[in-house]
Simulated assay, not measured.
Amino acid sequence: MAIFMIERQFADRLDLQPEDARELREINDDEHVRWLYSFLSADRRRTFCLYEADSAEAILRAAERAGVPADVIVEVTHTLTPDGASHDIRESVG
């Protein structure tokens, strides 16, 4: 599976509850995508999420079903560290 970074911009401050996360997992399971983790902006209106999926289209389907934005979806393959080293991201996510 490929790894994707998704940028989401929300109109209101994000307040994800456990039941919301459970519903997202169920939808993601149906679409064969896996939410790995997210970064949340200080104002809680933007997230940067790391996902594992077969395609960007699968992520879009899951987002549409869940009623959440998926403004930018970018496939990522490597991480870069301050020492200039590059690592295959799939080896880190496993």
Rank of each mutant, 00 (worst) to 15 (best):
F10Q: 06
Q17Y: 02
I89Q: 07
E26Q: 03
D54W: 11
D12M: 15
L16P: 00
A63Y: 03
S86G: 08
L16K: 04
I3D: 09
S38H: 07
R44L: 15
L36C: 04
A58V: 01
V76K: 08
P18M: 15
R46P: 02
Y37V: 09
A66C: 07
S55I: 08
M1T: 00
W35G: 00
S38V: 08
S92A: 15
V74R: 10
L24T: 00
T81Y: 11
A63D: 04
A2W: 07
P18R: 12
R90T: 04
V76M: 13
D12Y: 10
A62D: 02
R45F: 09
E23N: 06
H87R: 14
T81H: 09
L36Y: 00
E31L: 15
E19M: 14
Q17L: 15
Y51M: 04
L14F: 10
M5S: 01
R90E: 11
E31I: 11
R46E: 13
C49A: 09
R8K: 11
H87W: 12
Q9H: 01
A53Y: 02
I6A: 12
M5H: 02
Q17D: 04
R45Q: 12
L40Q: 08
G84T: 01
L24K: 05
T77P: 05
T47D: 12
H87G: 04
E75A: 03
D20P: 03
A70G: 04
R34L: 15
L24P: 00
R65A: 08
S86N: 11
D29R: 14
I73W: 00
L50Y: 01
A58F: 03
R22K: 14
L36V: 06
I6E: 06
E19N: 10
L16W: 05
M1Q: 05
N28M: 13
E7M: 09
I59D: 03
F39G: 01
D88F: 05
S92F: 15
W35E: 07
S86T: 09
R22Y: 12
F48E: 00
F10A: 02
E91T: 04
A58R: 01
G84L: 12
F48K: 01
R90G: 05
C49T: 00
A66W: 07
R25M: 15
D71K: 07
S92W: 15
G94R: 10
G67W: 11
R25E: 13
F39D: 02
P82R: 11
A21C: 13
D43A: 10
E19Y: 07
